[in-house]
Write a protein that binds this DNA or RNA. Structure first.
Lengths: 76, 76
DNA sequence: ATGTGACTTCGAGTCCGTG
DNA sequence: GCACGGACTCGAAGTCACA
């Protein structure tokens, strides 16, 4: 699932940019600690409601979360 | 829920551009007829897996489905 | 052909732990 | 602090009957 993978990569990237633990990050975006972990590992397919909530709490758009991550190796 | 509404509007718009019934449209994107109806009326919060499947079958990106519909009144 | 409520099944989403 | 697991609740997925 491409979208899931994009989301996973973007979440991890953003979290590290802000130098937060999964714990703090989860609190920030208002989902459970273990759920963030699941998302970062592509183990869950979140609903668009959750996507919207996370994006809103991060101050970015849902598209930012789902689009191709910037620093991925080219897929020619 | 903004994303839900965007999806609803975009689905309806695209379906009408292709002059299809909900029935035919549902068959095309590979979901049940009534489910498309629910989505067009913002009654469901689909997972990104479903979003991806629909977008793929339409030959467009998931972002296209979720972004602000083109013919909405400008938000200055 | 469209809209809706209700239903079952299964996974989303949460919470408890453990290494 | 991160990964992972089990068990739980609730809502999404998918379908149907009916207006």
């Amino acid at each position: 699932m491409k979208l899931r993978d994009n989301l996973a990569a973007n979440l991890k990237r953003i979290r590290r940019e802000r130098e937060m633990s999964q714990d703090d990050f989860a609190a920030l975006v208002d989902v459970h600690r273990t759920y963030i972990n699941h998302l970062e590992h592509s183990k869950r397919s979140p609903t668009i409601d959750v996507i919207e909530r996370i994006a809103g709490n991060l101050g970015i758009t849902a598209t930012d979360l789902l689009e191709e991550p910037p620093s991925k190796p080219p897929q020619l």
